[in-house]
Every structure is written in structure tokens, then in C-alpha cells.
């Protein structure tokens, strides 16, 4: 549906995005992930034809954004970061104005409006002025705007910002449902959202792609050891030495000691061995009960941080070990990034 090849956008000398290439398949929900200022919104603005790219090509449904902007715009619904709302209009007026702009036929308008409002659940506020709506409702009206004309491609720039948790889940489910009929690009810096909704993730940093993969693969690729947090009642030192003695444990770190004699430890173990059973019996033998035990998955959050922020020293040394095990392309890109940062520092 969308094909982006070597797309760049320069503002003067600064590259907002550089040499971006990726594709969006039909019926796919693609997550677009990156820290603030990474170039997410710029990329989306270019795809939707709001701003032109400095170099490279963007094709939507086979039409080039530069050569056939009208054909492209007919096929895209766009929800920008700041929903483009007219505050002094009612919801229905606004959406019917959008229908006008999108050149929806008069006969199809009413059913179209009712359908879209039903979909994002704003039918009950359709007569209210947009300025009087809460942020969540405004966001939904923005989403409704993007849905009008049922475009083949939906581009949503941080669609759940400012919503309450219940609404976030609703909107996520809605996006998932929409994914059946539409191809969707969804940008976010909330990782749980991306991993919950998207089939594929593009991680972008400083205007360049650092990784493209499924959320599962991304966390799997990084995660070569298991991490636990365990809380044990007993003297810190002896508990620690017991934990260290268990087969498969790589590393034990004391996190904190609580008042009631129990201490928290962070444990890393080999992936192949389950240390939970031996840990239980060992500690039970010594008379130190386990108060709490938790297995920490390496979340997409960690992957994200690792891929996007090379300046941050990861608290787990294992993560940097894991880096060497990444596949080559990804490592190359990360290495490029490090070089880039280094260059920048030199310039400074």
C-alpha cells in the first residue's frame, strides 16, 4: 500500500529524516516508534502530502505523492498529532465540512457520517461545539475525521494521547478492528500500545530507521537471559550467597532492604535453566521464605531504549553482551548510530 524509498527531508542543513525506506502491506498495522523529535511526524506529513520530501519517493497505492497528490490524498485518512479541529463548529457540522473537503457524494454523506460517528462513539455529542468537548472526545472527533471517506490507508499520529485508560483500550480495539479493512500506520512513543496493536514495528531514531521487525522478534532478539526480581526474608548476605550458588544463575544484585528483614534481589539466569524450583528448595532449606518472585520479560521498552539511546548506560551489563548476538544488519545500523553520535560530539 505504501512504498517509501530513500526518503529524506532536510530543513536547511539539518536532516529531519534521512534515507528512510520501508513498506506498508495491505491490511497491516505498522507501528512507528521513536523518541520525540525522531522524525515520526515529519515522515507522516510527507506520506500524506502535507509537506514534500527533499529526496526519495513515496508511493501510496501505486501513486506517487509528488506526481499524483490528489489520487494519494483521496486514499489516505490522516490524524495529525494535533487534531485539526474547528473549535467553533459542532461535531456534525465539522464532519460534514470534512465530507465536503474530501468530496464525498451528497447522497452518501448521511450514512457515512452516522457510520463514522457510531464507530468512534461520538454520536451522543454530535450536536455539541467541539471546543466544549473533553480532550478524549476531541481526539475521537479527529479520528472520525480521518475515517471519513473510508480511505484505504490510515495514518494516525499518536492517536491515544490525552485519553483515559478506558478510552485508550477502546481506541486500541477500534484501531485493531479497523486494521481488517484498512492499512494503518500508527505512531506512538507508548510502547505497550505498539506491541498490543501492531504487527510490525519500525523504530526510528534521529531520522533513521534502527530496526524493523515484529514486536515479539524485537524483544526476543535482545533477550538472551532471564531476569527475576525476588524478595526474600532473611539476612541479606547469606541469602545472596545461596542465590549465587544455584545452578544457572549468572548474576545477583541487591536492590533494596525492607524493614521486615526481607531484601529484594535482581537475578539473571541462563535462558535454558529454570532456576525457580531449585531457588525455592534451597531457600526453604535455609529457612528463608520467598515473599515475592517475578519474572521480568525484557520489554519492548528496553529494546527501544537500547536502540534509540546510545548515550544511556544500560543498568544490565547482559544487555550490552547481547548486542553482539544481534543479526548483522541491525548491528550495523546501531553501529552507524554510535558513530553518528560520536561525530556529533566531536563537532561540538
Amino acid at each position: 500500500m505504501i512504498e517509501i524509498q530513500n526518503m529524506s527531508k532536510r530543513y536547511g542543513r539539518v536532516h529531519a529524516v534521512k534515507d528512510l525506506s520501508f513498506t506498508l502491506e495491505k491490511g497491516e498495522i505498522l507501528g512507528f516508534l521513536g523518541p520525540n523529535g525522531a522524525g515520526k511526524s515529519t515522515t507522516m506529513n510527507i506520506i500524506t502530502g502535507y509537506i514534500p520530501p527533499s529526496a526519495g519517493t513515496v508511493k501510496v497505492c501505486g501513486f506517487d505523492v509528488m506526481e499524483n497528490p490528489f489520487e494519494v490524498k483521496k486514499r489516505i485518512g490522516y490524524l495529525p498529532e494535533q487534531p485539526p479541529l474547528y473549535m467553533d463548529m459542532t461535531v456534525r457540522e465539522y464532519l460534514s465540512y470534512v465530507c465536503d473537503l474530501k468530496q464525498i457524494k451528497k447522497s452518501a454523506r448521511k450514512s457515512q457520517l452516522d457510520h463514522v460517528m457510531e464507530l468512534v462513539k461520538i454520536t451522543d455529542v454530535s450536536g455539541r461545539l467541539i471546543k466544549n468537548l473533553s480532550k478524549g472526545y476531541k481526539q475521537r472527533v479527529g479520528l472520525a475525521q480521518a475515517l471519513i471517506g473510508s480511505p484505504e490507508v490510515l495514518i494516525l499520529d499518536e492517536p491515544t494521547v490525552g485519553l483515559d485508560p478506558k478510552q485508550i483500550i477502546e481506541i486500541r480495539n477500534l484501531i485493531k478492528a479497523l486494521g481488517k479493512d484498512h492499512s494503518i500506520i500508527l505512531s506512538s512513543h507508548i510502547l505497550s500500545e505498539v506491541s498490543a496493536v501492531c504487527e510490525r514495528v519500525v523504530i526510528i531514531n534521529k531520522g533513521q530507521i534502527t530496526a524493523i521487525d515484529t514486536p515479539e522478534n524485537l524483544s526476543k532478539g535482545m533477550d538472551e537471559s532471564l531476569k527475576y526480581t525476588v524478595s526474600v526474608a532473611g539476612p541479606q548476605d547469606s541469602v545472596k550467597s545461596i542465590l549465587k550458588g544455584i545452578f544457572g544463575v549468572r548474576k545477583v544484585e541487591t536492590l533494596s532492604t525492607k524493614d521486615n528483614d526481607s531484601s529484594d534481589f535482581a537475578i539473571e539466569s541462563n535462558k535454558e535453566t529454570d532456576i525457580r524450583k531449585p531457588m525455592f528448595f534451597e531457600l526453604a532449606k535455609a529457612g528463608y521464605p520467598i515473599m515475592e518472585l517475578k519474572l521480568n520479560d525484557m520489554s519492548l521498552e528496553d529494546v527501544f531504549l537500547q536502540l534509540t539511546d546510545n548515550d544511556v548506560v544500560m543498568p544490565n551489563s547482559a544487555v550490552s553482551e547481547d548486542k553482539s548476538k544481534e543479526d548483522e544488519t541491525e548491528e550495523d545500523k546501531t553501529a552507524d548510530n554510535i558513530e553518528e553520535t560520536a561525530e556529533k560530539k566531536e563537532v561540538e
Binding site: N45, T48, G49, Y50, F70, K73, K74, I76, Y78, P80, Q82, P83, P84, L85, Y86, M87, V98, L101, K102, Q103, Q145
Partner: peptide
């Protein structure tokens, strides 16, 4: 200022 310019430019008009 309101960012509604985006709507105008990304619609086929």
C-alpha cells in the same frame, strides 16, 4: 495556528 491547515492540505481539494 490551530493546525487545521493540515486538514486542508491533506484533503483532495
Amino acid at each position: 495556528k490551530n493546525g487545521t491547515e493540515v486538514l486542508l492540505f491533506t484533503s483532495p481539494s
